[in-house]
Amino acid sequence: MKRIYVREEWCLGCRLCEYECAYANSGIGNIVLALKDKEIDPNVKVQTDGKITFAVSCRHCDEPLCISACISGALSKDETGAVTVDRSKCVGCGSCVMVCPYGAVRITKEGTANKCQLCMNNTFGEPLCVKKCPNGAIVFEEK
C-alpha cells in the first residue's frame, strides 16, 4: 500500500505539515479562516530528539495493535490497507492510545479517538502534509 514515509535528514522542523493537516481536516475551504486564531490539534506531529526533527503520523501498520485493542469497532483497516477511525462508533476508552507504539492515535477534546487517515476522509484525497512539505521530508509512496 501507499504510505507516508519520513526522510528525517530533510526535515527542517518548520511544522508546516501540522498546519496543512489541521487545514485539510477542518472542513473549511480557506486556510486562513480554518486556522486563524485557532489552536491546532493535527494528526501529524513534528518531534525532535534534540538533534533531528521528524514528522510522526500513523504508520498504517500491517498488524495494527490499535485495532486489536479497540472495543467499539471504530478502528478498522479498509481495502487499501489504510487504518481508519469511525468517530461515531468510538466510546473514547483510550485502549488504542494505550497500545499504539508510535503514539500516533490520540483522544481529542471531543473525547473520541483521531488519527491520520491519509486524507482519504477529506476532500483532498491524498496527504496534504506530503504535498505541501517544501523539503520532501515526508513522501507518499508504495515501498
Binding site: Y5, V6, E8, K45, D49, V56, G103
Partner: peptide, 17 residues
Amino acid sequence: RDLSIYPAEERKAALGG
C-alpha cells in the same frame, strides 16, 4: 514521551518504512 525515546537508528528505519 514521543518517538525520540526510541534508538535513533530504529526510529529512522521505522519511519522510513
